[in-house]
Lab assay of single mutants.
Amino acid sequence: KTVKFDGLQFDFDNPEKALKFALEVAKQKGAEVHIHGDEIKIE
């Protein structure tokens, strides 16, 4: 899975870790997590 935000991109082999990371970043930024297939966007 790939996590994208602020023009940055982070690749994870483990989908659970990717989602956990995305949710943590979103919480800190006050943003929402959007999942599109293998891509997780924080907006």
Rank of each mutant, 00 (worst) to 15 (best):
K1V: 15
K1M: 15
K1H: 13
K1P: 11
K1Y: 15
K1G: 08
K1T: 15
K1N: 09
K1D: 03
K1W: 15
K1A: 14
T2P: 03
T2N: 05
T2Q: 06
T2H: 07
T2V: 13
T2Y: 08
T2W: 06
T2S: 08
T2M: 05
T2G: 02
V3L: 02
V3H: 02
V3C: 07
V3T: 01
V3D: 03
V3M: 00
V3F: 02
V3A: 04
V3Q: 03
K4W: 14
K4C: 15
K4V: 12
K4T: 13
K4S: 11
K4R: 10
K4G: 04
F5E: 01
F5K: 02
F5C: 15
F5D: 03
F5L: 06
F5M: 05
F5H: 03
F5Y: 11
F5T: 04
F5A: 03
D6I: 01
D6N: 11
D6W: 08
D6R: 04
D6P: 00
D6F: 07
D6C: 15
D6G: 09
D6Y: 08
D6T: 00
D6Q: 08
G7E: 05
G7S: 05
G7K: 04
G7P: 03
G7M: 06
G7T: 04
G7Q: 05
G7I: 04
G7H: 05
G7Y: 05
G7L: 05
G7R: 03
L8H: 07
L8T: 05
L8C: 14
L8E: 06
L8P: 00
L8V: 07
L8N: 06
L8W: 09
L8G: 03
L8K: 11
L8Y: 09
L8Q: 10
L8A: 04
Q9D: 04
Q9L: 09
Q9V: 13
Q9Y: 08
Q9G: 04
Q9P: 02
Q9F: 09
Q9I: 13
Q9A: 11
Q9S: 13
F10N: 01
F10D: 02
F10C: 14
F10H: 04
F10K: 02
F10I: 08
F10S: 02
F10W: 13
F10A: 02
F10R: 00
F10E: 02
D11C: 15
D11N: 12
D11K: 12
D11F: 15
D11T: 13
D11H: 15
D11V: 14
D11W: 15
D11R: 12
F12N: 01
F12E: 04
F12A: 02
F12H: 01
F12G: 02
F12V: 02
F12S: 01
F12R: 00
F12C: 09
D13M: 08
D13P: 07
D13A: 08
D13I: 08
D13E: 11
D13V: 08
D13F: 05
D13Q: 08
D13G: 03
D13N: 08
D13L: 08
N14G: 05
N14P: 00
N14A: 07
N14Y: 03
N14R: 04
N14Q: 07
N14C: 13
N14H: 07
N14M: 06
P15Y: 14
P15R: 07
P15H: 12
P15I: 14
P15V: 12
P15L: 15
P15T: 11
P15Q: 07
P15E: 13
P15D: 11
E16A: 09
E16Q: 09
E16V: 09
E16K: 05
E16F: 08
E16C: 15
E16R: 05
E16H: 09
K17D: 15
K17W: 10
K17A: 15
K17N: 12
K17E: 15
K17L: 14
K17P: 03
A18H: 00
A18K: 00
A18W: 06
A18D: 04
A18N: 01
A18G: 00
A18M: 01
A18S: 01
A18F: 01
L19C: 15
L19W: 12
L19N: 02
L19F: 08
L19P: 01
L19R: 00
L19A: 01
L19K: 02
L19H: 04
L19E: 05
L19Y: 10
K20T: 09
K20D: 11
K20N: 10
K20C: 15
K20P: 01
K20L: 12
K20E: 13
K20V: 09
F21L: 04
F21G: 04
F21N: 05
F21R: 00
F21E: 06
F21P: 04
F21C: 09
A22F: 04
A22S: 01
A22N: 00
A22K: 00
A22E: 05
A22G: 02
A22T: 01
A22Y: 03
L23K: 08
L23P: 00
L23A: 07
L23Q: 10
L23C: 15
L23W: 10
E24L: 08
E24M: 10
E24K: 07
E24A: 10
E24Y: 10
E24F: 08
E24N: 03
E24Q: 09
E24P: 00
V25L: 13
V25C: 13
V25H: 00
V25G: 00
V25I: 13
V25A: 05
V25D: 04
V25E: 05
V25T: 05
V25K: 00
V25P: 00
V25S: 00
A26Q: 00
A26W: 00
A26P: 00
A26C: 13
A26G: 00
K27R: 11
K27C: 14
K27I: 10
K27W: 09
K27G: 10
K27Q: 11
K27E: 12
K27V: 10
K27H: 10
K27Y: 10
Q28I: 12
Q28P: 02
Q28C: 15
Q28G: 07
Q28E: 12
Q28M: 12
Q28S: 11
Q28F: 09
K29D: 08
K29G: 07
K29Y: 15
K29F: 15
K29H: 14
K29E: 10
K29L: 15
K29I: 15
G30K: 06
G30T: 01
G30M: 05
G30E: 07
G30D: 08
G30I: 02
G30L: 06
G30V: 05
A31E: 05
A31S: 07
A31N: 04
A31T: 06
A31V: 08
A31D: 05
A31K: 06
A31F: 11
A31Y: 14
A31M: 14
A31C: 14
A31L: 14
E32I: 14
E32M: 14
E32R: 12
E32F: 14
E32A: 13
E32Y: 14
E32N: 12
E32D: 10
E32P: 05
V33H: 03
V33W: 04
V33R: 00
V33S: 02
V33M: 07
V33A: 05
V33F: 05
V33T: 03
V33K: 01
V33Y: 06
V33I: 13
H34Q: 09
H34W: 12
H34I: 13
H34N: 07
H34C: 14
H34P: 02
I35K: 04
I35V: 11
I35F: 11
I35N: 02
I35E: 05
I35T: 04
I35R: 02
I35C: 14
I35H: 07
I35D: 04
I35A: 06
I35W: 09
H36M: 12
H36K: 09
H36P: 02
H36T: 11
H36R: 10
H36A: 10
H36C: 15
H36Q: 12
H36F: 12
H36D: 13
H36G: 07
G37A: 09
G37Y: 06
G37P: 07
G37I: 08
G37Q: 09
G37K: 07
G37D: 08
G37L: 07
D38H: 11
D38Q: 08
D38E: 07
D38W: 08
D38V: 07
D38P: 06
D38N: 12
D38K: 07
D38T: 11
D38I: 08
D38A: 08
E39N: 06
E39G: 02
E39D: 07
E39P: 01
E39T: 13
E39S: 07
E39M: 11
E39Y: 12
E39I: 14
E39V: 14
I40Q: 00
I40H: 02
I40D: 02
I40P: 02
I40W: 01
I40M: 04
I40A: 02
I40N: 01
K41F: 15
K41H: 15
K41L: 15
K41Y: 15
K41N: 12
K41A: 11
K41R: 15
K41C: 15
K41D: 06
I42K: 02
I42F: 04
I42N: 00
I42H: 03
I42T: 03
I42S: 03
I42G: 01
I42W: 03
I42Q: 02
I42V: 11
I42R: 00
I42P: 03
I42L: 07
E43S: 11
E43G: 13
E43H: 11
E43I: 14
E43W: 12
E43P: 04
E43A: 10
E43M: 13
E43D: 10
